[in-house]
């Protein structure tokens, strides 16, 4: 905890912050630590999905013991120091029989 906070230190910090904020940011300052996200789309519309064979109708139900899938995305490129396999202990999930 910041037990040493004094009213003077608050004023000093604000004063320093104002000085920093008043200066235009350089192009690459702290580039690694910040990032703009993408523009969002609208989620409400009145379209219908095309046909009846889309992903949504495929039979998937892990509660009935049918779920055996492994993530196959960018998680495979990560490394975890605590994982013996190197990338996050991925294994096929087998639901317990009900």
């Amino acid at each position: 905890m910041n037990k040493a906070v004094t009213t003077t230190s608050l004023a000093l910090a604000l004063s320093a912050a104002l000085a920093v904020a008043a200066i235009p940011m350089t192009a690459h300052a702290a580039e690694k630590d910040k990032c703009f996200g993408v523009a969002l789309k609208g989620k409400n519309d009145c379209k219908a999905g095309a046909g009846t064979s889309c992903a949504g109708t495929s039979k998937v139900d892990y509660q009935s013991n049918a779920w055996s899938m492994v993530p196959k995305g960018t998680c495979e490129q990560t490394t975890s120091p605590t994982s013996p396999t190197g990338f996050g202990q991925l294994q096929e999930f087998k639901a317990k029989s009900a």
């Binding site: 379209k47 999905g49 095309a50």
Partner: peptide
């Protein structure tokens, strides 16, 4: 549809 006749979907696509 189930007997092979056209079923149109309002896809807006």
């Amino acid at each position: 549809d189930s007997i092979g006749q056209p079923l149109l979907i309002d896809s807006h696509g």
